[in-house]
């Protein structure tokens, strides 16, 4: 890795819809994918991130800046993550988990996965199929049998709030 210099290095990231973002290298290397590119010396110009759209990348950069500004205090970092994710809807969280996976950011991946789990905990089977884009491949008889087997887990399921 390049030796530390007095001036903070700035990287330029490009989303798949051609938006450009400037971000401090120290924050951006929270992403292992970006860190590898920097270490390999491919970060001279613009770093293209082909799997992340501009809206999601903007959000990820907000997170990168926010979390790297917090000193090594796991408790404070956790409460920042909680607050950061608190108002995000399922679709945004889904985009973020894909981005975190692609960018190889384990702390964001963990936090978003946990948040998605929290959102879906009390949801119906139908809600999950719609949101995850899963086709029901059970026959009606098979589905009824699986549901019957775990009948008690269908207590306390929320009414779907999507349409």
């Amino acid at each position: 890795m390049a030796a530390e210099t007095g001036t903070p290095t700035t990287l330029t990231l490009k989303s798949n819809d051609d938006e450009l973002f400037s971000v401090a290298e120290s924050a951006a290397i929270l992403s292992v994918t970006i860190r590898n590119m920097v270490e390999d010396g491919c970060a001279g110009g613009v770093i293209p991130l082909d799997n992340v759209d501009g809206k999601t990348l903007a959000s990820v950069i907000t997170y990168m800046n926010g979390i790297s500004a917090i000193p090594a205090d796991e408790e404070k970092k956790k409460s920042y993550r909680d607050k950061f994710l608190s108002d995000k809807d399922f679709e945004t969280l889904a985009d973020m988990v894909l981005a975190a996976n692609y960018l190889n950011m384990s702390c964001l991946m963990d936090a978003v996965s946990a948040k998605i789990a929290q959102v879906m905990e009390k949801k119906s089977v139908g809600w999950v199929r719609r949101k995850f884009g899963i086709e029901n491949d059970y026959t009606p008889e098979e589905e009824a049998a699986v549901k019957e087997e775990h009948k008690w887990t269908f207590e306390g399921v929320e009414t779907d709030d999507d349409n």
């Binding site: 988990v97 996976n101 995850f132 059970y138």
Partner: peptide
Amino acid sequence: FSEEIVEEILSRLPVHSLFRFKAVS
């Protein structure tokens, strides 16, 4: 989602939700 991501998310659910979601597919 890739199966890897689905697993990442599901592994954070309580048991009763997981049993319910066996009916997803």
